[in-house]
Design a protein around this nucleic acid. Structure first.
Lengths: 344, 344
DNA sequence: CCGCTTTAGTGCAACGATATACCGGAGGTT
DNA sequence: AACCTCCGGTATATCGTTGCACTAAAGCGG
């Protein structure tokens, strides 16, 4: 690889001049020299070494992305949105799978700092983000890509869909269709998003006066190291309990689409038909939602806009000086065939 | 962030000694000094700057991963497998979505080189990898994560499932079940894998003497910039043509599971039932295959082993000296309920 | 023709690590 | 006592870039 010195030699100037050219430092360049440098660069196919640049300036054009597992289609979509938004600003993305393990998360974060990343985006903010908070207080920019304005932690910016609103809209939608016996199926309260979604369900159910008709089914997930396909897998198992419930709910809201896919598969195995026997609403609106049998009603997250905001938050000059912010985006209800009016 | 000099000062030694300690250069260290350095490091929470290290040694612990789109669950799984394998050897992964655009692919590759990556893994090798080949000839390590031993390009290592074998096994399986009117549904011959799969289908069909009974349906995909969910989406549309075909096939093989998911949804819309009306086999064995309705027979790729091999290939000392290699892994047929014996 | 500003461009010290070459002193050999 | 050999550790150049401080030459008013 050609260095700036090779270019300088080829153009018959000093490295400084090439550097000046590259960073177009104005006022200092005769047109002739400018041209000589230009041709030398193209002929040698010179590209400045990002590494040297990093070392010198201290600034990187790299951000770290922490997700539980990219094999989870939701985080696949998140990773793609983030990478595209980053690329639009000339940033590279380093991908890390944390498997929801705080220890791993912390280790990754430290590695990323050693790599000199500009900031870190964490796809699923664990409930006790002390490990990240500590790094944030040392000047690292951190954005939690899910969570909740209330749960803001010092130094950690939040860019998230309104999780409570998602479940609220789901309940509203089902109640409008005449459903009252509504069950919410969720995993353990491990992440801020899960907690907020559950809360949204509870308040909406109360507002509609559903009382005992509203139920919450928490399914347990293995501690970590599962590729998140387990979420769907466990949905399959959880379906049995729902199918056998004494007063079976007429509608189901799943913590997310992945779980919904599993639940749908499980219900099918037990001879329960969606939407005739039970209605179902998912959250996230994966592209898979509309390919399901039947296509599933879900709440869409505006991922592209959110990713854009997250990157802007890290890249923006505001940087460390900015106080902790929370940007909350509203979800959009996408109605499909999995929800029909309740049988009377 | 503490630097090696801060540690040296804290321990009352020179930076060289700290460096010696870090790279355990043996023979040269009194136990007392060693301890002083050790405590200084832990107290200052010192971590060597990867950036400086890179600049000095020229070696990075970073690899680049080029995939069409991580939002595609298959590439999500690939990305996760690669990242895990990389992590096991202390490597970081930089993620790039190419949208199957050679221009973008080339640009990413050059950016990655400027970043000093140790090598590049490309998830879907386009048919004319001239752009990568050129970089490879300049000393960059490149591994194509799909392809075909025959299509080997100078300088590009291949680590792939045996794509031809995948379709061959699918045909064998269906023929064993008594099917003869078998259709293969594929996208345009854009990647090495697609070409190899098609070839495998054709040779297997010929070997079984299927003649006109074996048909190939190529569906066209938009040029790029689609998030790969379009593949499934287009499967939905393609299902119509298959449903209306004069002598409808009794079995379908899809280029991959994502397309199969779309086809399944489309067939359903046209009132065609799997497996009674038509049997279906996918390729890749996404975790979604077993959650489909009905669960789908598919050909599994040993992604973990393949990722391991790909990383070993890049990291191994062999490096540039090694001749172009091709490591081909056999796929495994996973039989589920989407394939049943043909109606007589 | 002298001094002053402007223009065009160079020199050099960093950034944080590594590694080669070196060096002072303790101990052993002859 | 002079010489050699280890041992423990340090000084220094270097990786590719940046940006400040500097300078040589040209322009210009008086």
């Amino acid at each position: 690889m050609a260095t700036i010195l090779d270019v300088a030699r080829a153009a018959g100037v000093s490295a400084s001049s090439v550097s000046n050219f590259l960073n177009d430092r104005r006022g200092k360049m005769a047109p002739a020299t400018r041209e000589r440098i230009e041709t030398a660069i193209t002929e040698l196919r010179y590209r400045p070494s990002r590494v040297a640049l990093q070392l010198k300036t201290g600034k990187t054009a790299t951000i770290g992305l922490l997700v539980p597992a990219v094999a989870n289609p939701f985080f696949g979509a998140v990773a793609m949105a983030i990478q595209r938004a980053a690329q639009a600003r000339g940033y590279q993305v380093i991908l890390c799978n944390t498997f929801r393990d705080p220890k791993r998360e912390r280790e990754f974060a430290e590695d990323l700092v050693a790599l000199g990343v500009r900031g870190i985006i964490t796809g699923a903010s664990l409930l006790n983000p002390g490990h990240l908070s500590e790094l944030a207080s040392k000047g690292l920019s951190v954005v939690a890509f899910e969570g909740d304005a209330g749960a803001a932690v010092p130094g950690i910016h939040v860019v998230s869909v309104d999780n409570a609103m998602a479940t609220t809209l789901a309940v509203d939608h089902l109640v409008t269709l005449g459903h009252r016996r509504i069950a919410y199926v969720t995993g353990p309260a491990q992440t801020a998003a899960r907690v907020a979604r559950l809360k949204g369900f509870r308040t909406a159910a109360e507002r509609h006066g559903l009382g005992e008709d509203a139920s919450v089914h928490e399914i347990s997930l293995p501690p970590n190291d599962y590729g998140d396909d387990m979420i769907a897998e466990l949905g399959v198992g959880a379906a049995l309990a729902l199918a056998k419930a004494p007063r079976r709910p007429t509608a189901l809201i799943a913590m997310n689409d992945l779980l919904a896919i599993g639940l749908a598969a499980g219900l099918r195995e037990h001879g329960i038909t969606i939407p005739d026997d039970i209605a179902m609403v998912g959250i996230d609106d994966l592209f898979l939602a509309r390919l399901m049998n039947p296509p599933m009603t879900s709440l869409r997250q505006p991922l592209a806009a959110m990713a854009e905001a997250a990157i802007a938050c890290l890249v923006g000059d505001a940087g460390e000086a900015a106080p902790t912010t929370a940007l909350i985006f509203p979800p959009e209800l996408i109605v499909r065939q999995s929800t029909v009016p309740a049988a009377i």
